[in-house]
Nucleic acid binder design. Sequence first.
RNA 1: GCACCCGUAGUUCAGAGGAUAGAACGCAGCGUUGCGGACGCUGAAGUCGGGGGUUCGAGUCCCUCCGGGUGCACCA
Length: 586
Amino acid sequence: MDIKSRIESMISEAVYKLYGLDKIDVCVDAPENEDHGDYSTNVAFKIAKILDKIPFHIATELSHELFSENLKVEFEGKIYPIFVKIEPAAPGFINFTLSELFLFQNTLIINGCEDVYGSNDFGKGKTIVVEYSQPNTNKPQHVGHARNNFIGSSLSKILSHCGYKVIRTNYVGDIGIHICKSMLMYLKYGNGKEPDKKPDHFVGEFYAMYEEEREKNPEIEREAQELLRRWEAGDAEIRALWKKMNSWVYEGWKKTYADQKIEFDEWEYESEKVNVGKEIAMLALEKGLAEKDETGAIIARLERYNLPDKVLLRSDGTSIYSTKDLQLAKDCYEKYKFDKRLYVVDVRQAEYFRQLFKILALLGFEWADKLVHVAYGMVSLPEGKMSSRTGVVMNADDVFEKLVELEEYEIKNSIKMPRVVKETAQKVALAAFKYGMLKVDAAQDMIFNLDLVAKFEGNTGPYLLYTYARARSVLEKAGFELGRGKYQHVAAPKSVLMHPKERVLAGALVHFQENVLEACKDLAPSRIANYVFDVAQKFNSFYGDVPILDAKSESRKRHLLYLTYAVSVVLKRGLDLLGIEVVEKM
RNA sequence: GCACCCGUAGUUCAGAGGAUAGAACGCAGCGUUGCGGACGCUGAAGUCGGGGGUUCGAGUCCCUCCGGGUGCACCA
């Protein structure tokens, strides 16, 4: 159990013992101000009213009780207290200060369990399906997809670090009027040409061409509709073209996903769901949730729930996207019996998902409340909103390529071998890309500034990788044997006297576990990002003030190396949860 | 028109109802004959959009106004 949870249960017990109060919502958090200790609680405020006492008095009594019941840590056969101080602070907080010995021991624990540090069993035995990416096969992926991909894959990692069984799934929009638009233009102007560039970009150009032409000639919309009709009728020629163009797009995405290190356990295709969901529409009709209107369309009435009505079946009886989504959810539940299903989809679809979830709930599916829309905000560029009109469209491949270029320029002086430069630049670029997007709270709209995220200074991916590489370099110089469990048996220092910066750094490492858990509960990769940056800053500050290799004594040096190694472990693990790979040198 | 989201330093963003609102970039300075100076340190910079309310306590919750964005049935 992590230390925060231990403090919480310790407080609950003390509150019960002193005041006989049960079921008090105990809240423990990490204060920003170091003077307030490593953890603090406001529980005295919460119970002050019930007890009709002054918060500070309660805090005083409680901290006394808590300190006498001080948690113990066993070390080398001896028992030490975990806290050096548990004291009240006006107007009624209780602040907990960890002992340096505990912090020292914690760094040793990290040394001994690097891979699993920060993991927990919160989701043990539970299955969670994460649907993300969901691109359409008419064009390359843009930076918005990149944000989606990064959030989805990071969440998957965080959830599985918290014990969940995670199924990553991609639902591809491989058919629909938008696909027919690029097909139409290829038929008109393609002349049977094969891709002469990254094939998804090649297809995307025909789609862009369509948008241009439609401005001049709105008639072509009807032609696109006609193509869709032919596709649905199974027209061999259209099907063959569709297959060919989609395969180009998949080929292009293969590289996009490989560059971004994005993976899925399962792919679903919209084209395979043609006309599924009719049953569901009929069920809705039966349950009186939906009605047939004068044109024959089946419409779910949601006005009572403060939502717009939703068409389930067209008047011609064919199903639309939402019907397929209803069926997909049902099939998915039957297949996995998931405890939760996440839809990582941009915030513009928020109302759509409210409709979808409401319909499923009204249909009586008890699992409807397990569906969650993870809404992420829109990405725009410093130049303004992305749009094909203004030409400030940035596709994900171009952004990545540009980032690689920038990073290559940065590192080429410190690395000699050209091939290593290229490899490293790609990793640094991806770190810049992912971190730049994930550090912002997912729900917020964001402005993605390519030049800023690529920098080696500031709150960036490269800064974090640099910090990691720096730590590793010290360890290497010291001949510190890297690897799990190498330094588990160390003599306990009689007393540990830490440099203030060292104390702060060691304290920060303790918080990793609760940050992982909170990131999992809140579905918020940004929490990990902020935490990792905090650790990196504290390490660099420590590094500036405390000589490691020239420490006063051998044992002192060893302690500092444990700490440095622990930092590298936490950075590596934290970044991994964001889907970012570290580099040893850069 | 209705609904949802967002207004925090010049800029990009953190802030789980708590303590003196933080960081990064940019700006002005400073630092090792020391482990990676791609770093660190110091400083200037804020009526948390305005106004009410709830609370011991509000940037955070509620109401309202202003400003910005997004979505509203046979597209996906």
